[in-house]
Design a protein around this nucleic acid. Sequence first.
DNA 1: ATGGTTGATATTCAA
Length: 276
Amino acid sequence: MKIASFNINGIKARIEALTDWLKEADPDVVLLQEIKSIDENFPREHFEDLGYIVETHGQKSFNGVAILSKLPLEDVTRGLPGGAGMGREGADDIEARYIEATVVGDHDALRVCGLYLPNGNPVDLNADGTPVAGSKYDFKLKWFARLQARAEELFAAETPFLMAGDFNLIPQAEDAKRPDAWRQDALFRDESRRAWRNLVNLGFTDALRARDNTPETFTYWDYQGGAFDKNDGIRIDHFLLSPQAADYLTDCKIDVFARAKTKPSDHTPIWVTLDI
DNA sequence: ATGGTTGATATTCAA
């Protein structure tokens, strides 16, 4: 079973690029981020015609996640638990950033969690260095804590699951071409990386690092300044596998070629294959 | 050097 994650930066602007990549990569399940569309406007029929089931969790203008699957999806849930009163400025967390579903393989069932973790910039700090309550950075760290809580629930079941998507998180210096340029950024600051390590240390396998330690392997390159041509990128799209899912892992790769095509997303797909 | 690029939307915000 081939499962991919792709931050497409707008479904309307990316129909062609996504379709081309789907035909070339032929994944069974795709977790999409930044569909930037309400559910009603997602081009559902277009992808159904390509053989995919479509489950969306969108909102107007920004964010939005979805799952495309050639295999049946069971128990689809939308939204990350614990969001009441946890939005920015104390509002309810209505941002569409999380979707879960169960896909059944030949040998075992797999829970897939597709996520678009908040960017967190700009970083607003109090005089004592703590994040300003209600700021974007505060929202990111609190969202991380909610993701941790959901992961702990799923770990307790001791069954195969994975969390994948755009984590907006650079794990280590080798995951950036110019790490020093990111030290104070919400994607690489100590507080963010601590939250990432706490999550991974529950027992996840970082699938890319388990299968590929090639230097300068990135998933995102800014549109500006010819960043892709210089490979001035960062690794922020990840697959985290539970121990029971990692037992089925056979491969993990980043499809860099998709970033080099016409009118690309600023991210490129990452995928795993599981013998499940 | 506070630039540069893209998408959705509205005459800016988010990334």
